[in-house]
């Protein structure tokens, strides 16, 4: 129970970072925290029905649910890819406008376009 409440807090901190922070790099950090919280929740809860890793070395042990782990593997890789692209976009925006602040970027882009 406590750990799940903490995960909710983590998720909301990440969401706060995305919504309220002005610096676009911090926004990207926030997105990663958000993603990590969702992944951790999935893995944590999936591990409640067993004690062993899902590798069948010693017969039919009480293994955890392998599906969340396989799904989260995909979700993590996708998260990393999106982050890489977001960082590249941020670098490009910095090159165009000379700022990492979202409001300044908006203004300068509007001036140019």
């Amino acid at each position: 129970m406590v750990e799940r409440v903490l995960l909710l807090c983590l998720l909301l901190i990440g969401f706060w970072g995305v919504v309220a922070k002005k610096n676009i790099i911090k926004k990207i950090f926030g997105l990663n925290i958000l993603n990590a919280a969702a992944v951790m929740l999935f893995i944590l809860e999936g591990n409640r029905i067993g004690t062993e890793a899902p590798i069948l070395e010693s017969g039919l042990a009480q293994v955890v649910d392998p599906i969340p782990q396989a799904l989260m593997l995909t979700a993590i890789v996708i998260g990393v890819c999106v982050t890489a692209l977001a960082l590249a976009l941020a670098v490009h925006l910095y090159q165009i406008t000379g700022s990492f602040d979202i409001d300044t970027i908006r203004e300068r882009v509007k001036d140019e376009a």
């Binding site: 899902p54 070395e57 392998p66 599906i67 782990q69 593997l73």
Partner: peptide, 8 residues
Amino acid sequence: INLVSAIY
């Protein structure tokens, strides 16, 4: 043997 590999 690794069920995660088996799934993904």
